[in-house]
Amino acid sequence: MNARDGSCGAVSLAGLRAVLQEDVGAAAPAARLRRLIDLGCGELPLPALGRTAERWRALAEVAAHDLSLAKLYEGHTDALAILCELRAPDGIAGSTRTSVWGTWAAEAPGQRVAIRPGADGGLRLHGQKAWCSGAEQASHGLLTAWHSGADVPQLVAVEMGHPGMRVDGEAWQAVGMAASASATVSFDGVPAAAVGEPGDYLHRPGFWQGGAGVAACWHGGATALGRALHAAVLRAPAEQRTPFRLAALGRVDLCLAGTAALLRDAAQWIDTHPQADARWVALRVRQAAEACAQTVLEEVGRALGATPFCRDAAFARMAADLPVFIRQSHAARDDAALGECLAGLEEPPWTI
């Protein structure tokens, strides 16, 4: 990938599926992410350059396989996109091919990372950053930090493993998404490099383009559960294809097909309007994907009963992970934010 021209090698879905289906035993998601990167699957088409749908299909494919892996994969690929968009210094951008990146921008109350000048004139980080998925295994991280008195964050890049850095995963108690290895990272004089100017991370077009891409991950997880219901109906003898299960499959189809259509439409809109504010587009697909995931969880669980939750490890893990992952949504606050966006339009975009 070239940080200046935004070029990126294509990842074939067939090739990605083949790597995902490899027998890696009990390998943790971080190790599997490393393998995806080593085999050339770590770079996706960049958003808003005509191939956004391809990017999201790859994210959904990984998510349908393993949501914890998808969380790390999305963070890595998002970091590469951000470095390109904000034209990161050559010393940072040049390390992307072999590095494992995390993107950590959540701001937990009372855990703001401060930027202070170092004795050599460079930047030094102090404080704590919560919700750092994959931090223990990442080689590099992109995170938001704050200059003294600033009202907007500064995005910085760090090299993991510095002596002034401590990674603590003890606070993460969730059963769902446990393998994403979310941690709190403490910084004590850790050197960092600025990526863009203060506020650039939030105000760039790619912020909401990337936010919409997360919905593709949620959709991939919901699709995996929907496929389990479809397979159960398909394998059942005709006399066991009960109206109850068929109705559940029909309702699952409606929400998954509808969300997939919204994601395709959103990808096309972003490619057509690469510099536009995609906030309303992202909020729409995120809220649709969250609602669809909730519906699929309910319908599939009711239709299949306890058996797959108890005897199918992949299904049970997906059913536990998905409710945690979709909580990245801000629920009713995002509904209100979408309504606010629409209230500023002369005509709502609802025509066929």
Results as ranks from 00 to 15, higher is better:
2 N>P: 09
14 A>H: 13
16 L>F: 04
20 L>Q: 14
21 Q>F: 03
28 A>S: 08
29 P>G: 09
30 A>W: 08
30 A>Y: 04
34 R>Y: 05
38 D>K: 02
41 C>H: 12
54 E>C: 03
56 W>C: 01
57 R>S: 15
60 A>N: 01
68 S>P: 07
68 S>T: 02
72 L>F: 09
76 H>C: 01
80 L>K: 06
93 A>V: 05
98 T>S: 09
98 T>M: 12
103 T>M: 13
105 A>H: 14
105 A>G: 06
110 G>C: 02
114 A>G: 01
117 P>K: 08
121 G>F: 11
124 R>F: 04
128 Q>V: 12
128 Q>E: 09
129 K>I: 06
129 K>Y: 02
135 A>Y: 05
137 Q>D: 08
138 A>H: 15
140 H>Q: 11
150 A>L: 04
151 D>C: 09
155 L>K: 06
158 V>K: 08
161 G>L: 01
166 R>P: 15
166 R>W: 11
169 G>F: 03
172 W>C: 01
173 Q>Y: 03
175 V>F: 10
181 A>C: 14
182 S>H: 06
183 A>H: 10
183 A>S: 09
189 G>M: 10
189 G>W: 09
192 A>H: 04
200 D>E: 02
203 H>S: 13
213 G>A: 13
213 G>Q: 06
215 A>M: 14
215 A>Y: 02
217 C>F: 00
228 A>D: 06
233 V>I: 10
237 P>A: 10
239 E>F: 14
241 R>M: 05
245 R>G: 03
245 R>Q: 08
247 A>C: 07
249 L>Q: 00
253 D>G: 12
264 R>H: 11
272 T>L: 12
274 P>E: 12
275 Q>H: 14
285 V>G: 07
287 Q>T: 00
289 A>T: 10
289 A>Y: 00
291 A>H: 05
292 C>P: 07
294 Q>R: 15
298 E>S: 12
299 E>I: 01
307 T>M: 01
307 T>V: 08
308 P>W: 05
319 A>M: 06
320 A>I: 14
324 V>Y: 03
325 F>E: 14
330 H>C: 13
331 A>G: 01
331 A>P: 00
337 A>F: 00
341 C>L: 02
344 G>W: 03
345 L>C: 07
346 E>Y: 07
349 P>V: 01
350 W>Q: 13
352 I>C: 13
352 I>P: 11
